[in-house]
Design a protein around this nucleic acid. Sequence first.
DNA 1: AATGAATGAGCATTCATTCAT
DNA 2: CATGAATGAATGCTCATTCAT
Lengths: 220, 220, 220, 220
Amino acid sequence: MTPAIAPDIAVVPRSHTAKRLSIIDAAACVFCREGFAGANIDLIAAEAGVSRQTVYNHHGDKENLLVAVVREITERINAGVFDTLATFPDKPVDLEADLVAFAVRLNQNCICNRDGKFLRKLLHTEGERYPALFAGWREDGPAKTWAALAARFARLAHAGWLEIDDPDVAARQFLALVNADLQMAMIFGDTVSEEQLRTAATNAVRCFLRAYGKPRPAAI
Amino acid sequence: MTPAIAPDIAVVPRSHTAKRLSIIDAAACVFCREGFAGANIDLIAAEAGVSRQTVYNHHGDKENLLVAVVREITERINAGVFDTLATFPDKPVDLEADLVAFAVRLNQNCICNRDGKFLRKLLHTEGERYPALFAGWREDGPAKTWAALAARFARLAHAGWLEIDDPDVAARQFLALVNADLQMAMIFGDTVSEEQLRTAATNAVRCFLRAYGKPRPAAI
Amino acid sequence: MTPAIAPDIAVVPRSHTAKRLSIIDAAACVFCREGFAGANIDLIAAEAGVSRQTVYNHHGDKENLLVAVVREITERINAGVFDTLATFPDKPVDLEADLVAFAVRLNQNCICNRDGKFLRKLLHTEGERYPALFAGWREDGPAKTWAALAARFARLAHAGWLEIDDPDVAARQFLALVNADLQMAMIFGDTVSEEQLRTAATNAVRCFLRAYGKPRPAAI
Amino acid sequence: MTPAIAPDIAVVPRSHTAKRLSIIDAAACVFCREGFAGANIDLIAAEAGVSRQTVYNHHGDKENLLVAVVREITERINAGVFDTLATFPDKPVDLEADLVAFAVRLNQNCICNRDGKFLRKLLHTEGERYPALFAGWREDGPAKTWAALAARFARLAHAGWLEIDDPDVAARQFLALVNADLQMAMIFGDTVSEEQLRTAATNAVRCFLRAYGKPRPAAI
DNA sequence: AATGAATGAGCATTCATTCAT
DNA sequence: CATGAATGAATGCTCATTCAT
């Protein structure tokens, strides 16, 4: 009955973790759609494919479940943002093209994807009521990613690609520009095409470079 | 029962309209704080200083009340935006200073005030679920205000103050930049100081002008 | 619309108070039958002939309802005990007969009646879990009634009818004897006949007088 | 699976019976604390140090478990009472001292101990609802112990130590007096000191002997 | 228009009980 | 025998909505 192959050792925990994850995903989905108060635990359970009891066994409480969801999502988002930040064009060939590609990745992987949408909605619906819920995210998320992005801009400035007074401000502005054309779509849940992503990124980067770009640095 | 004397005509309707307004204000407040599902009609009634029945007499239904709230708020917001747009510096003296003042007004009167916050929250919490609710706003709001702002930019460009390819894009970018520094504060309901408003506007306008400004047009 | 006759003035409050009382009575009944945990608020409401909401409007909470029940019952019991104490034979003609009559009244009006049964059951089922609930009762009930009864015995002793060392002990013993024959019946909710009451009282008083009675005091 | 060697025979059954007992003890404890309806099988299992399944394996049902608890406790109580009855002073030297010692033992071993408390609570909480549960106890318990005690008193009376009309009544009264001073403490679960026990017993016996004692019989 | 009650639905949560591993 | 999940029924409580006064 118990085969000798290793993977099975992981079977029970896997199903456990898998259930945990599917619960959190379903909960995120329902919380976003209906808000915390409007979310129905039975619906979450059904959407996760588990019984109501399992939800309670795993998370004990609706509020607890929200906490777990926020934690999970913010962790994923943070990880995604840092991954994407790592693709920032430190030694660009064609700065505009590189920044556009970067902006597209940012939108695709962090802002316009499922998790990004969840986080944004949760922030707006519950951010003011449970600030503590998002305190961790603020510290590990924006506080650090904005600084990291600012550092990249500062390096580009130092290398002669950009002309920037305050890299922090520039970083926030870059992100604001990158989102400028997509906000409405995301609020109403419209699906965003690749082309829209690219256009938005291009618009943003062009504006950004008109503001802060320098006539390409002297090549050595 | 309805006497013919004038005073009464004023008294009853006034209190009627006043109640209507206070109900809508209270409802807006509670809907934003608690979300539609979490909002309690008794609480709204209490916060409006009227009885539950009066709420039903006026609006008939929770959903109806939401509709009324959205209508009222979007109307106010739209009016405010157009009022503020009217203060756009068409014939600027000091373009940067004029744009900064404009941006401050925009934030102060349309985006960071009570109604702006309400609309933003409602958009995020209910926008995806009841897109129809906001269809009117989209048409009368962003669609027109963005165009109007784009037209102003186009005129400035034509007058030699700006160098713009696509005024629509520039308008969206201007708005995005104006909000860049304040989003987090607004999500968490922090109070925003005058100075923060001014700094945010200054940052935004500087970036915008670095991107699209021209060495002041030749004065005649 | 408002008739001049007095009774009507009391109509609304009456129904309110009447409902309050019927809720408490029903709750007492159900709490005793099923215990606090087993009591079903819907059942209480039904038994009281009101809607569930009315129960919540009046008492807010299951626990609160229990508190109200205990308060009401202990008040009634205390009042009944003091009323009965007032019938204690201070200047007896036939001491035995007088004490028997007193004991019968005590059992009938305070111990074997509905309220007495309720209080006893609540004491046993919830006394250890919510001692605070009954703190008031202990102070205003036993503490005072025992003392009052002891005082009566002391006076009888002083008048030469009894020979008592410690009136407090005697009072407790009198009560214990009065109940000796009825405990089992009350635990199982058997109905107690008048005759049983009288026999129990007679047995108790005979024992008590054999222990503490004096060969009738010298008549003047 | 079940080896033929003796030790195992002892081990498995022992643990089995031990578990059975610890389940019943835990159940008794929880039933008394929370009442039947409020008792949680998981809690009982945890308190017994076994798994929920084991509880079901042993007793099959919550109601069944209650039956087992009542059976066990009443058996223990009955056994205890008869053991104590066996220590009744049949040929007393100092009747008062002997009866006091007997009363102390009675309280200590049968009434104020864990089982006594459990039985009393169960009687009050479930006695009226499930009279059948306690039918066995009534027959094997009070019916017999009261008779046995009455017989002892009758013998003492015959031997000239007591003067009693109805030994049954005297037996009930003795028990009532013995408990008079401790009821309140037991209802609220207060711990009862040795001294309190002795005082209560002394008070009771003094009263009893004043009522029924005779100037010590002439020694032969 | 306000107040209090009622109705009926909904929902979070608990729990007894069973099943598979 | 333990663990964890599942099922299904309760149950406390809230709430939208209506009605009567």
